[in-house]
Design a protein around this nucleic acid. Sequence first.
DNA 1: AAGTGGTCTAGACCACAAA
DNA 2: TTGTGGTCTAGACCACTTG
Lengths: 230, 230
Amino acid sequence: MKRPATWKTIRVEALRRVHTGLWAPGARIPDEAELAAEFGCARATVNRALRSLAEDGLLLRRRKGGTRVPTTPVRKATFDISIIRQEVESRSQQYGYQLIDDRLEKPPGDAQAALDLPDDAPLRHVMALHLADDRPFCLEDRWLNPGLMKLDQVRFDKLSANEWLVRNLAYSVGTISFHALSADPDTARLLDCAEGTALFAIERTTRNAAAPITFVRLTYASGYRMQATL
Amino acid sequence: MKRPATWKTIRVEALRRVHTGLWAPGARIPDEAELAAEFGCARATVNRALRSLAEDGLLLRRRKGGTRVPTTPVRKATFDISIIRQEVESRSQQYGYQLIDDRLEKPPGDAQAALDLPDDAPLRHVMALHLADDRPFCLEDRWLNPGLMKLDQVRFDKLSANEWLVRNLAYSVGTISFHALSADPDTARLLDCAEGTALFAIERTTRNAAAPITFVRLTYASGYRMQATL
DNA sequence: AAGTGGTCTAGACCACAAA
DNA sequence: TTGTGGTCTAGACCACTTG
């Protein structure tokens, strides 16, 4: 056993025992008090280590039930959601932005459903293109609830709605999903690819505590890969 | 102020102050000792709350630098990686499995590169179809390093490689990425869609401490959406 | 050099879910 | 009922990083 029993070393050691099968899938592992005695540390330190593993889906903990190694672990993968400009710049590419369209109009069914707006009031519809090294990178197709946050007065010709919203409406709740779609003629033209090309898209709905704020579909240029970490 | 200052209530209150702008983006917030005094709790409790927010990307903490509200927060989204059978069953659908092909052959360039295998040794290639309510759900295209784990002796005709590996090689490291692809003739036939349909795919490479184990591409049937939580 | 978060301790009480 | 994890405390020392 290592001398300084920090919670990280305990985490590593616990993970090793799971890897090697010393703690078998489905089996219950010693409780915190026992492990604290074994490692010669406070129970809180063991707690920190095991809680960390449980947060990653590598252990299952229940009061009175003890801590177990899951038979079919559900790993958590995480990925960062940053501003598109940052995403481009982190690839060491030159970022560019181009506003395509910005008008009030009635939303299509999916946007209206996502925002959960009852009547058919017109919404602000912003289309914009994000560029990387002067090539199309991502098409932003956004619907905004104009009644909120003076959202009808902000101009998006220089600063993207993506960036403005992240800066001003961060820390709001919402949903996010990913899917593949086939490039329609307009999308193909804007993203400089053939019609029907398979494209990766992210849809996000953002809500305030009270009301829906915005629904956006980000369609990435052909070949885009989203990387996540386990 | 609430009476019982648990770390969760402090987390909520801190988030409220960020939301309302009381703690402005870029600004430094009071240090742990001050907040502990304000909330009438131990510093460790404040630490727990702020650390939790920092893990979600909603605060930035640095020793000596203090805790700040990020100007451009990088939110973390997480999603669960479970066995495909579980994914189907969690949708209240009937799971089915069908082995398509299983043979030794030389891998194509992408699989070989992903597994980082030097020579052109043949790998075990397993193709299988996962079904939901008797309809194609996901196509599993997997390359296995047969030298490891007696991987050349396991049969995948009843139990999917996906499930076997999760059960037996869980807790290994690797990479994961998502992209869109266009259905080639074989894929279209197996997934029961038109050739050229845009499909959502996940690629995962799994390594042991020492050696690469498996590379898999999971291609989902048309219309699939992957949901994540913020 | 000094301030701030990171961590550990030893003890305590509580909440939840098995038995 | 009882055992287990969940959390809080008051204090202490340490590590990093900024000024």
